[in-house]
């Protein structure tokens, strides 16, 4: 039962949060859409109306944003696609592996803590840690030191300094910081599965592999979708790891779309152009927002 109260009382409860969300999120998003049709600087945003010119330039003329006439395609959008394809699947894969394999070992809590640990430190600290790991100096970088001790002929690699390797290097650092999320979420969901069904599948002669693919996995679909969406959005929004580790370099190779908004607005002071990039980012995230609202609306009923 819901209590009887004055008509205005609910406003006291939900009003403050709604106000602050409208001022800081709803209105600014609308304003940014309007700014994306203009040209301007931080001191003078929206100085000149340019229609769709920003979008046209981004998608057809700006070689740093999208370059399709050479294989493989390069620029911000293809780099973002690489992140979106690799980062969530790698991170969810590792999380799933640990969630399920650690379920029946004695040191389960310990290994889950170890994987979760990097989630509580800042991206800046994580960046410092990985700049050190990737250092080409053999007295600093543990990765190069390990590689040259296994393959004595090989030369140390500047992981963050080479166009074709820098993204992989930062994605691995991002995986290190994020794998705790799928691990704890999938582990909690896995423990919630009805044991009788898993036992029955095993008794019916399914081996561990079959039971996992045919029985466990389908029942874990919702938490799997949730963490995959969250990590995909994190890849799209990514700024801080890239800002601290490479600032988008070498030669623009690690500019993901979220970072590019930062770069255009605060680095290049092109507020209209940066807003157009932000709108494209918003459009990419929109399906996830709609999905989320639908899920919750179902639960409310």
């Amino acid at each position: 039962m819901v209590g009887k109260h004055s008509k205005w009382l609910p406003l006291l409860f939900v009003g403050p949060v709604l106000c602050i969300l409208v001022i800081f999120l709803v209105y600014p998003t609308i304003h940014t859409v309007l700014l994306s049709f203009t040209k301007g600087t931080m001191l003078n945003p929206g100085r000149e109306f340019v229609g769709l010119a920003n979008f046209e330039r981004l998608l057809t003329a700006d070689k740093t944003f999208l370059r399709l006439n050479r294989w493989p395609p390069s620029g911000v959008l293809p780099t973002t696609a690489l992140w979106v394809l690799v980062f969530p699947s790698l991170t969810v894969g590792i999380g799933m592996l640990i969630a399920i394999l650690s379920d029946r070992v004695r040191y389960e809590a310990t290994i889950k803590s170890i994987i979760f640990l990097p989630m509580v430190i800042s991206s800046t600290a994580a960046s410092v840690i990985f700049v050190f790991v990737y250092s080409p100096d053999l007295t600093k970088g543990v990765l190069n030191a390990a590689m040259t001790s296994v393959f004595p002929q090989s030369e140390p690699i500047t992981w963050l300094g080479r166009k074709e390797l820098a993204n992989v290097a930062i994605i691995l650092a991002a995986t290190w910081t994020s794998a705790g999320l799928p691990t704890v979420v999938l582990s909690a969901a896995y423990k919630g599965l009805p044991r009788e069904i898993l036992e029955a599948a095993r008794v019916d002669g399914g081996n561990a592999w079959q039971v996992f693919w045919r029985v466990s996995l389908p029942m874990l679909l919702r938490p799997l979708t949730f963490v995959t969406i969250m990590l995909t959005i994190n890849a799209l929004k990514m700024v801080d790891l890239i800002l601290v580790m490479t600032e988008g370099g070498p030669r623009g190779a690690t500019r993901v779309i979220g970072f590019t908004v930062w770069l255009e607005i605060f680095g290049n002071n092109r507020v209209g152009y940066g807003s157009a990039v932000a709108v494209i980012l918003f459009i990419l995230v929109l399906p996830a927002i709609i999905y989320q609202i639908r899920q919750i609306r179902q639960d409310l009923r």
């Binding site: 999120l25 940014t32 959005i233 930062w262």
Partner: peptide, 12 residues
């Protein structure tokens, strides 16, 4: 608003 990218809010 849970997952809206903050990038769309910075300038305003």
């Amino acid at each position: 608003l849970l997952i809206i990218p903050l990038q769309t809010t910075w300038v305003p």
